[in-house]
Simulated scan of single mutants.
Amino acid sequence: MKIGASMPLFPRENYLKKIRGFYHDDGMIKVITGVRRCGKSCLMQCIAEELRAEGVDDERIVFFDLDRYGFRSVKAPEQLEALIEPLLAVSGTKYLFIDEVQNVEGFEDVLNGFRTGGGFSIFITGSNSYLLSGELATKLTGRYIEYR
Score class of each variant (00 low, 15 high):
Met28Asp: 05
Gly27Lys: 10
Glu78Asp: 14
Ile122Asn: 12
Glu85Leu: 05
Gly134Gln: 14
Glu146Gln: 15
Ile98Ser: 02
Leu80His: 04
Phe97Ile: 00
Ser73Ile: 09
Leu16His: 06
Arg68Phe: 14
Leu83Gln: 01
Leu66Cys: 09
Leu140Arg: 01
Thr141Gln: 15
Arg115Cys: 08
Ala89Val: 08
Pro86Ala: 00
Ser127His: 10
Leu16Thr: 08
Glu108Lys: 03
Ser41Thr: 04
Asn112Gly: 03
Leu43Lys: 00
Ile98His: 00
Gly21Ser: 11
Tyr147Arg: 13
Ser121Lys: 07
Arg115Phe: 06
Asp65His: 15
Pro86Tyr: 01
Leu136Lys: 03
Leu140Ser: 02
Gly70Gln: 07
Cys38Trp: 15
Phe63Arg: 08
Gly134His: 13
Lys139Ile: 01
Ser133Pro: 02
Lys75His: 14
Gly118Phe: 08
Gly134Arg: 13
Ile47Asp: 07
Gln79Thr: 06
Ala5Pro: 09
Lys18Asp: 06
Arg115Asp: 08
Glu78Cys: 09
Arg60Val: 11
Ala137Arg: 04
Asn103Ile: 07
Arg12Val: 01
Pro77Ser: 04
Lys94Arg: 06
Gly126Pro: 06
Asp109Phe: 14
Gly92Ala: 03
Ile122His: 10
Glu13Gln: 13
Val90Leu: 06
Gly21Leu: 03
Glu78Pro: 09
Asp57Ser: 13
Glu108His: 05
Ala82Pro: 02
Gly34Trp: 02
Phe22Glu: 04
Thr125Phe: 06
Arg143Asp: 14
Thr141Leu: 15
Arg143Ala: 15
Gly118Ala: 09
Arg60Thr: 09
Lys139Cys: 03
Ile3His: 10
Gly142Ala: 07
Lys75Ser: 14
Val62Pro: 09
Phe120Val: 10
Gln79Met: 10
Ala53Asn: 10
Arg37Val: 02
Asp99Gly: 01
Glu81Asn: 10
Asp58Val: 11
Val62Gly: 11
Phe107Leu: 02
His24Glu: 05
Tyr144Asn: 12
Gly55Ala: 08
Phe97Asp: 00
Arg68Met: 15
Gly126Val: 06
Glu85Pro: 01
Asn112Trp: 05
Ile122Thr: 15
Ile145His: 12
Tyr23Leu: 00
Leu51Glu: 07
Gly118Val: 09
Lys30His: 11
Val110Phe: 01
Arg115Val: 07
Arg68Ser: 15
Leu43Gly: 00
Pro86Met: 00
His24Trp: 04
Ala76Tyr: 13
